[in-house]
Design a protein around this nucleic acid. Sequence first.
DNA 1: CTACTTTTTCCACTCACAGGACAAAGGGGT
DNA 2: ACCCCTTTGTCCTGTGAGTGGAAAAAGTAG
Lengths: 396, 396
Amino acid sequence: MRRMTARPANAHQARLLRLLRDGGPNSRAQLGDQVDLSRSKLAVEVDRLLETELVVADGLAASRGGRRSHNIRLNPHLRLLGVDIGATSVDVAVTNAELEILGHINQPMDVRDGPVAVFEQVLSMAAKLKASGLAEGFDGAGIGVPGPVRFPEGIPVAPPIMPGWDGFPVREALSQDLGCPVMVDNDVNLMAMGEQHAGVARTVPDFLCVKIGTGIGCGIVVGGEVYRGTTGSAGDIGHIQAVPDGRPCACGNRGCLEAHFSGAALARDALEAAQQQLSAELASRLETNGTLSAVDVAAAAAAGDATAIDLIREGGSRTGQVIAGLVSFFNPGLVVIGGGVTGLGHTLLAAIRTQVYRQSLPLATGNLPIVLGELGPTAGVIGAARLISDHLFSPA
Amino acid sequence: MRRMTARPANAHQARLLRLLRDGGPNSRAQLGDQVDLSRSKLAVEVDRLLETELVVADGLAASRGGRRSHNIRLNPHLRLLGVDIGATSVDVAVTNAELEILGHINQPMDVRDGPVAVFEQVLSMAAKLKASGLAEGFDGAGIGVPGPVRFPEGIPVAPPIMPGWDGFPVREALSQDLGCPVMVDNDVNLMAMGEQHAGVARTVPDFLCVKIGTGIGCGIVVGGEVYRGTTGSAGDIGHIQAVPDGRPCACGNRGCLEAHFSGAALARDALEAAQQQLSAELASRLETNGTLSAVDVAAAAAAGDATAIDLIREGGSRTGQVIAGLVSFFNPGLVVIGGGVTGLGHTLLAAIRTQVYRQSLPLATGNLPIVLGELGPTAGVIGAARLISDHLFSPA
DNA sequence: CTACTTTTTCCACTCACAGGACAAAGGGGT
DNA sequence: ACCCCTTTGTCCTGTGAGTGGAAAAAGTAG
């Protein structure tokens, strides 16, 4: 199929496209209820959208008592690619224009192999999704990378855990390879957008989304828009000092949050505990696998291992301490906890909550939900699809 | 003179009014260069503004080579009142519509006397300014109070240092008393708006403005707009933990930044040092005045007193530690330090800078100026005037 | 005094949009 | 089956915002 290149011609059309994306098929009349345009104007704009083939007619709508109306929906052949590059694995997913995931692959990988190797893998994963009949091509792609990004150009800047990517024109390169528009952002921001679109944060204008994975980052949403900061490094909370004169960190300082709690730190602590025979559970897992990761700690904790639970509590408490500061500062309406270590679940959440509710002011915490993300590993790819759809559904 | 009640009828007029406020008198042609409207449309809107008397014609503009044009300026009879209520004193100022201060009074006061007593004093100060011929009445007033505010309604919520004000309808009450529109905000936010309008932050879209006075607060500006948070308590950084298991704080926790460094804490430390005879300079000042305040510490430091300098360094370092965290999180383009203790000047600034540059990531600090506010005590009242002028110069 | 600029006004034309009239299509009661 | 009511879709005209060109007004430079 020929890919769609059309873009909305004006703000009204963009508005309508977003309504259809977020609300699914709608009749003209239902659209009219949401947009404050006269029926004639609305009809004109819908007709123009039909001409561009961005939307199509789609059967009869349910009756509301009078004449039944035809449904309008986003073209079901539109395909978006969501790519979430983590430190140690890649997620690639295909969605339709309503951002529903049609297919999703996850593969291990090492970002440090550099952009060329990683993109090769991403392209082959995308090809696999195409081959399975889910898409004949892509109308747009969103990419998340685990480091700061100069957003307008889509270029990583000085990313600590992916040195080979500094200055690599990710957006440009992938746009060439895929033959469609591409937008690039920090993976944490995409997770926030994912939870905002389809997860727990649907109705909250200002919230924080803390992602605890190999590292720790925080998506900041202000007035429904992701805030990226002056140089694109906003939300980089992994190197906030959590413990004065604490552990040395790769960044050169001591006591950084990431040095005390993150997927990597947790694995290290678990290894140490196992080697010192503090935990039979962890020791046996070490023996079986030859190595330990955050997943093992989660499993051990679920099995009731006290050492593992302590590690999680301790880390959650440190994280909670930092989040408490951010809550006082930012006064969000919601805090979402997500990322690889959400397997640690409610033990972690409870530790974080305890610390935040204890340390922040009542006015800020009074009505503040602190919850786990709803979407798990799909948050990133949904956010990526959302990123590019926001771009495609804005006036040219 | 009859007060102006007119408001701009549409976004174009609002835009023009703000241009005249921020850029002073302008010819129609100069305005045309800035607003992307056709000459005819511009002429129509300017004519309508002239009819409302919000703007007036004002002599000939400088020639640009051809026919000379008439200047347009905001009505020079417009008067705004800026009120900055601190913990221990009030500032009241009159400005014209271009937010230039025409008269400014400062008087000691105690917020804890409650809103009724304070407003009585504010009204008498406003009356004094009127009596001196600076104004015949006010077209609008902006008020800053030292605590969180539910912004749309202009009502303080659960302010820790001014308990009697909780829920008092400040906006409503003052609007009645003054007979003009009133807007209320946190004093720190107003300081940020002041520095944005007329101070160091003129061109920076995203910045932080840390005010160190009796307490410590932080104004947050995102995309040129003040961010107030979900419940209006954003920027309340005084109770972020700076020292684990540190000093007990009035809020019930331990180690809050405010407990370790603020005008109040500094005075307490100085008193202790004087009593323990650690500093001859401070001891003699205590003897002379019977009490010590932050100003005494500043003076002692300026005189070379080592104890006083140490107190400032220590405090600056604690503050810097907290700001470092905020910088990592928020990635601002500028950090402004202001408030009562700016008399501590460069000793303080240097301590803060050292800590921030050491602890935050290079990407966030690379090009980050940390500077003292330019406006001193006038920042608050200018910000207040700016607040109400933003309100008056927006479509009705 | 003339040639050239810039500013301002005036006017005709376009275009977006609202809102009413009317036709089309369906639901439900009798 | 029939009729009336409601909702939906289409058509059409009036209105008001806004554009852009022409010409007048008011300068400057030589």
